[in-house]
Design a protein around this nucleic acid. Structure first.
Length: 492
RNA sequence: CGGGGUGUGGCGCAGUUGGCUAGCGCAUCUGCUUUGGGAGCAGAGGGUCGUGUGUUCGAGUCACAUCACCCCGACCA
């Protein structure tokens, strides 16, 4: 079942890619590095969006929308931030096409050159902060808590479905606060929102922690992250929340008058998750039969497959299923009756498994006579024939159980692959086998870089909730004193 | 941009040292039988071999050029 997914190999990449395609989530588009998210994949993303959006709103955040295009000059203001982004951007230079004078087709009209180039947003800090400048005058205007759901473009050299595409969908929250403490608290709060979403909705165990200065977001004073382990043991950064200090406020001159009449720069945070979460979902839970969706995110939670030989049987089974569907929907579940007449049951079983539907019900003449139904769960592939009596409540409970069970399985897998390591030679070997290693680190960028150069492993985070390990020791590489262990892993 | 690889029906591939009408699997279409784990049989349709030039009696096969895509690096949610 869990295939050779424990080994990091080209096979795993292949498995991942095939699954994303076969489960009908997405496909490569005609444009290099871009992706088409197909209806089934998008339905899962929509579900993620709606749950996250609800969680954001409970923290007082509101949605807004800022432009796709950002004048080039805006990027000149925040040097450090720009150093981290400016390189791989799409740039708009013209605003008109015209017919090719000597041929068919169209060309860019050279007359229509823009005076100032526009950058397709790789992230929206610059345009948002130049807008916030106008919104914020007084301490009474604070905090400003906005989020936007949008697409961004980063002209990546190498791309992978969902994990890294040239254009991707995400949400980015940007907040402005009167004090450093308040902004820091917001950054903490939002990373915890992400952690809760990952654990409770995606059934994805994550480690919450700080990024090392090297791995921080360009322009941030502190970056908080949730790090997840995929089934090949590699780490995936699933979400980040940044405390930006006053860097952006100073660059974009966003000042306010405090309640003592003094002018100050505001304090900022930003935080985001992207369609990369879709990749996490596939790689954390999928198996050889396909996708395994946690019920909380499944567009279809229960699928029913009728089995019949004659038209009379078909109608009888479908009628029973329609009743069952109504009952389940009354309990708030999404249900599909697969009444396609041209496909055989075995084909449908395989197809819905591939798509990760948590619960499958099969019913045929035999069941009709006996008053039973076959209940199959996707996560364990178990099948049980049960009486129809009270089946709705049972399925409700089963869905909750599956949600928990998927999380527990992923958690057990991760815990089995996190180890303390104090020996450099051992580190070099073990890190390649797909482990998270808890190691002492002397806190210097030099050591971190040296380890990365030798092994490709990076500090995923300095944990703050699980795996916190504050103890004295010596750095695994440099031998210098260290006060805590950090998480090392090879990452996506 | 550096290193490696691949381009042959919709998809995945085979095609030997150049040789005759370019094959196979999946998918598609038709018919019959099937239907509790991706159906079976019979039949049918569909490709000029990425592109260009050259070598040759003859090129999918050889040479040169070119384009596209993929993988490994640099970049990254």
């Amino acid at each position: 079942m869990a295939k050779e997914v424990t080994q990091r190999s080209e096979n795993y990449s292949q498995w991942y890619n095939d699954l994303a395609l076969k489960a009908d989530l997405a496909e490569q588009s005609a444009v290099r590095g871009c992706m088409v998210i197909k209806p089934y994949g998008y339905a899962i993303w929509e579900k993620m969006q709606s749950v996250l959006d609800g969680m954001f709103k409970k923290t007082g955040v509101q949605n807004a929308y800022f432009p796709l295009f950002i004048p080039k000059s805006f990027f000149s203001r925040e040097a450090e931030h720009v150093a981290g982004f400016a390189k791989e951007c799409a740039v708009v230079t013209h605003h008109r096409l015209k017919n090719d004078p000597d041929g068919k087709g169209v060309i860019v009209d050279p007359e229509a050159k823009l005076e100032e180039e526009l950058i397709v947003r790789p992230t929206s800090e610059t345009i948002i902060w130049s807008t916030y400048k106008n919104w914020i005058k007084s301490w009474r205007d604070l905090p400003v808590l906005c989020n936007q759901w949008c697409n961004v473009v980063r002209w990546e050299m190498r791309t992978r479905l969902f994990l890294r595409t040239a254009e991707f969908l995400w949400q980015e929250g940007h907040t402005a606060h009167a004090t450093a403490a308040e902004a820091e608290a917001k950054a903490q709060e939002m990373v915890q929102v992400y952690a809760r979403f990952a654990r409770e909705v995606m059934a994805l165990p994550v480690i919450v922690g700080h990024k090392s200065p090297n791995e921080r977001f360009a322009g941030a004073l502190d970056t908080l992250t949730i790090e997840a382990m995929m089934q090949d043991g590699k780490a995936l950064q699933a979400g980040t929340s940044h405390f930006l200090g006053q860097n952006f406020a100073k660059s974009f001159d966003v000042r306010f008058t405090n309640n003592e009449g003094k002018e100050e720069y505001v304090w900022a945070t930003s935080w985001g998750v992207s369609t990369r979460l879709m990749g996490a979902l596939i790689m954390a839970h999928g198996d050889d039969n396909g996708l395994v969706l946690p019920p909380a995110l499944a567009p279809i939670q229960v699928v029913m497959v009728p089995i019949y030989k004659t038209q009379e049987e078909r109608e009888a089974v479908l009628e029973k299923m329609a009743q069952l569907k109504t009952g389940l929907e009354a309990l708030g579940h999404s249900v599909k009756v697969d009444d396609r007449d041209t496909l055989r049951p075995g084909f449908k079983f395989a197809e819905w498994e591939l798509k990760g539907v948590p619960v499958r019900l099969a019913m045929g003449a035999r069941d009709l006579a006996a008053g039973t139904v076959e209940v199959a769960r996707r996560d364990t592939l178990e099948k049980v024939t049960m009486p129809l009596e009270g089946i709705e409540a049972h399925i409700s409970a089963l869905l909750a159980q599956i949600q928990q069970s998927i999380y527990d399985k992923a958690l057990a897998f991760r815990d089995a692959n996190v180890e303390k390591c104090d020996n450099w030679e051992e580190f070099k070997t073990k890190i390649q086998t797909g482990k998270f290693l808890l190691c002492h680190w002397d806190g210097t960028a030099e050591t971190e870089q040296a380890i990365k150069d030798e092994t490709k492993a990076t500090i995923r985070c300095i944990p703050v909730d699980s795996y916190v390990c504050e103890e004295e020791g010596v750095d695994i590489y440099s031998g210098k004193p260290s006060h805590q262990r950090v998480v090392f892993a090879i990452s996506y």
